[in-house]
Amino acid sequence: MYDLLNVKGLKTAFKNNNQRVSVVNGVDFGINKGEIVGIVGESGCGKSVTSLSIMRLLHDTTGDIQDGKVTFKGENLLDLSERSMRKIRGKEIAMIFQEPMTSLNPVMKIGKQLMQGIILHLKYSKEKAKKHAIDTLKSVGIPRAEDIMNEYPHQLSGGMRQRVMIAIAMSCEPELLIADEPTTALDVTIQAQILELMKRLQSDRGTAILMITHDLGVVAEVCDRVIVMYAGRVVEEASVDELFESPRHPYTKDLIESVPKIGERKSRLYSIPGHVPNPNQMPNGCKFAPRCQHAMEICFNKEPELTSEEKRKHRCWLYQQNNVGREQNLGSK
């Protein structure tokens, strides 16, 4: 059990042409207070849907949560009324998105957008809210904070907008910040600034961060613990050092291997054959088996469970205790 957030057996499906397609299928993980946890995976692995499910922001779309528990400080968020959920969103759990332009209201001044949440959640007076807003802007490294309060989002650059988004998210001092690809739309030098800022906020205020990204570099840079997702499932979970040093799941290994790394020029990059399976046509058994170099017979027939090994977890037949598969594999060699 983790002391801030526990996600258990989360299942989210999307309705597509009268067909229910599971995008997130039985995801388990947790976050401790003040921890930075990363979820990595390629597009379509369900990492963003997981975060939207935690925030229960899927209501207006065709997706809905089918099963599971999301316990935040002892309370199951999935049981809450929409009204009580609103009190948690923004105040206890805040979220920032990939595209800072579309997630800010283009016709509202920055100051007003910031103060909205402060007045709503912290019940501050207008003057107090304004002061708090300016302080928050300063704390995320925005110069001329007083002037920025009266500007519109389009007057700011991408990096500044993302800082404003972070300021809005941090203004009510949430205990958990969910960041969905916060630096993907930004340039590298700006990305470095934003990542630095997020690390600082975590160490200064003890905010826990759930970092959703496809970029292994970002994960290595900021996260304490990493969850690797593939085809709607958690395939591996480990501390960041363990994960990069000794990845267990073949997918994690391949993913790390296929990233081009500065200073390691190779004539040929390692590449994983094939593609992420379509949610409509999931393979039986392990979802990675068709692309896996170590696939055994059992992998195509039966899906492995997420099993713990000391402090880490993985979902692979290669490491299942007293499994039939390993013997088969050894036998075949």
Binding site: P273, G274, H275, P277, N278, N280, Q281, R291
Partner: peptide
Amino acid sequence: AEIVTKTDYMPKSRGKLRSFCAA
């Protein structure tokens, strides 16, 4: 280049007319 199509996911081909009618 390696032929990757064997394991490629291939969304079911839906005719334009059919999806139009469905909507």
